[in-house]
Amino acid sequence: MSETAQSNHTEKKDFLVRSSSLKDVRTFCREVFEKLQIEQNLKDELVLAIAEAAQNIVKHAYKNDPQTDDKMVVQISCKDNKLQIGFYDMGTPVDPNKVKHREIDNVKPGGLGTFFIQEIMDAVEFKDGKKPWINHLVLTKQL
């Protein structure tokens, strides 16, 4: 489902909560950012941040459950040069206080996804999910 306006632009799409959906999430984002004429470097960064957030839903909210038929929704909105990306899922509730990246100097596998999101985006906010959603994450970036 998508809706576009001349001054504002909003598109959203749902995806099965599976690691195999991550490629589709990236494709969706690239297509939207193409329409928004976002330059390549920023587009690459935004796609990475969005894919990391989607990966966190698969990995943490759903513990990489291959059996789930649940879907997550990614919504990209752009208004007055402010980009807002919303993520909705019905997985395990996220405690925002426990969402931390590893110390960047403590080199070990894992714990970088949240770091990338925070590096790329201006703001990361967990909101109360309104039914049927449990988690609602909002990433924002001033363009």
């Binding site: 991550l22 990236r26 990475l48 894919a51 990391e52 990966q55 970088l112 996804g113 770091f115 990338f116």
Partner: peptide, 8 residues
């Protein structure tokens, strides 16, 4: 393209 999982 490589994400945090690839970096790991």
């Amino acid at each position: 393209y490589m994400d945090s999982s690839g970096i790991s």
